[in-house]
Amino acid sequence: MISAESLALFVVACVALAATPGPNVALIVGTSLKHGRRAGILTATGVNVGLIAQLALVAAGLAYVVETFSRNFDLVRYAGAAYLVWLAVLQWRGAGAGREAPMPSARAAFGRGLAVAFANPKTLLFHAAFLPQFITDRADPVPQIALLAAVFAAIALVGDVLWAVVADKARAALAGRFTRIADRVSAGILVGGAALLLAAGRR
């Protein structure tokens, strides 16, 4: 079993990671600024379903899947960056529409989050290298990795929902004549997420 010290250190590391903005957070914040809390939380849900799938692959020890992502690292992240830029263009063109802007369906918001989660291959490679560092019993690693994956997923979901809520509060504060500013900030955040994907390296 994992020692209490290792688990506590892992929780601290997970909280720090959840508080660090990346492409997933950029999508969640950008969506919440444009469309509100519900759309942001649905997007966060999609992101975290993708995250759970990645963690499950790592916990199951499917090294060949990780290797496939590694071989196609650049292709996947370029596609993800292009997708974020496309979403940014849509939001920039709709700047100022405010609360009359068409709300994405639940399926669309969820799908965006899921797509961007899988468009960042570095997260899968990171999990494959990160989780095993906290294992204390090398003789029986699978249950420990599964536990660590579950803890990571829970903290990530809470963190992403908090990002959505905070962004929605900012949207409310910028309502009215500042709506266009909020929409363009939202588009800028999405472009920033694309830049983070493009800047991502294998190390």
Score class of each variant (00 low, 15 high):
104 P>T: 11
61 G>V: 09
27 L>W: 01
48 N>E: 15
134 F>C: 13
150 A>D: 11
164 A>H: 08
34 K>G: 13
128 A>I: 06
83 Y>I: 03
31 T>P: 00
119 A>F: 04
108 A>K: 03
102 P>A: 02
4 A>T: 15
21 P>K: 03
131 L>S: 03
175 A>N: 10
85 V>M: 01
202 R>F: 14
90 L>G: 12
175 A>W: 05
31 T>Q: 09
74 D>M: 12
165 V>M: 12
81 A>M: 09
22 G>C: 15
142 V>L: 15
89 V>K: 02
146 A>P: 09
71 R>G: 01
94 G>H: 09
159 G>R: 05
19 A>L: 15
89 V>Q: 00
127 H>N: 13
68 T>F: 07
115 A>W: 07
178 F>V: 02
30 G>R: 02
46 G>P: 01
36 G>K: 07
91 Q>R: 05
41 I>N: 00
48 N>H: 15
180 R>H: 08
122 K>C: 02
53 A>V: 12
52 I>D: 06
65 V>W: 06
58 V>K: 07
28 I>S: 00
178 F>M: 12
159 G>Q: 11
191 V>L: 09
90 L>Y: 08
56 A>N: 07
77 R>Y: 11
95 A>T: 07
120 N>K: 11
14 C>E: 06
45 T>N: 01
197 L>A: 02
126 F>M: 13
34 K>C: 15
198 L>S: 00
123 T>F: 14
42 L>C: 04
134 F>T: 08
10 F>Y: 11
